[in-house]
């Protein structure tokens, strides 16, 4: 048991490496925030395409559904590997897209962002869909009988209500996304878990991994409490609602 504490809770080692681990965690946070921002927008686009009315738009709807199924069905790790493995060889892409180094971040960072955003966009699309379907049908009828077009109905009536409803699952998915950023270490991005492993390889001690875990909890636990509070508030509001 002593060995366990020595291996995982070496305080002096944690203190020594706190700076580097924190740097790695900052990388994690950047990955998470940027990917999530893109995924939130992309997911909404997908969800709206799925809602398009009319027969002519059926191919677009099917494509959206196929995309969502595909990216919900493949492990994120595979997506990361496929993107980083293939992009450098996509000659038809201009250099600045093929191996992007925007804002001083290397190409592997952006491959990671793309992989996460494409995958979580699919998850968010489903969350949006649940929210949209949860908006009472009467809202659509009211909007329609006032003469609003499908686009106006979505934009002014349905989506604002849908988004408010789905904040808890959105936050939950964000927590999952943030944890999943650690997968991009396999293509070379040094986020907090990789930092821990590099320190582990150098020192034969795993305490930096524990430190990484603690940093994660510092963020994810408060987020989880916020989710709980949102859910409670929504429950109360439902109970108070007019007929």
């Amino acid at each position: 048991m002593d060995v366990f504490f020595e291996q995982y809770f070496d305080i002096s080692l944690m203190r020594e490496n706190f700076g580097i681990v924190l740097e790695g965690f900052w990388e994690t946070v950047q990955l998470a925030l940027i990917s999530a921002a893109i995924a939130l927008v992309w997911g909404l686009v997908l969800a709206l395409i799925r809602q398009l009315p009319g027969k002519g738009t059926a191919p677009a709807r099917w494509l959206a559904i196929a995309y969502i199924d595909a990216f919900r069905g493949i492990p994120l790790l595979l997506v990361v590997l496929i993107i980083s493995g293939s992009f450098p060889f996509l000659d038809f892409l201009p250099e600045w897209l093929r191996a992007p180094t925007w804002f001083g971040k290397p190409d592997i960072f952006w491959y990671g962002v793309l992989a996460i955003a494409l995958t979580y966009g699919a998850y968010y699309a489903e969350v949006y869909r649940a929210g949209i379907e949860a908006v009472p049908h009467g809202q659509r009828e009211a909007a329609r009988s006032l003469g609003m077009s499908h686009a106006a109905e979505m934009r002014h009536v349905i989506v604002p209500q849908a988004v408010r409803k789905v904040i808890p699952p959105m936050l939950n998915d964000f927590i999952a996304l943030m944890k999943d950023t650690s997968l991009v270490q396999v293509i070379g991005v040094v986020e907090v878990v990789k930092v821990g492993r590099e320190i582990q390889a150098d020192t034969f001690n795993s305490s930096a991994l524990t430190l990484g875990a603690i940093l994660f909890l510092v963020v994810t636990i408060p987020l989880a409490r916020i989710v709980d509070r949102q859910i409670n508030r929504q429950q109360l509001r439902l109970q108070r609602a007019a007929p």
Binding site: S84, G85, P88, P106, I108, V186, I187, G188, E198
Partner: peptide, 21 residues
């Protein structure tokens, strides 16, 4: 400028091919 470490040596070779290192 940066030293990237890979889990398996083959990944390093692959990164070499892809121009990432």
């Amino acid at each position: 400028a940066d030293v990237r470490t890979y889990d398996v040596v083959d990944d390093a070779f692959q990164a070499l091919q892809a121009g990432q290192i």
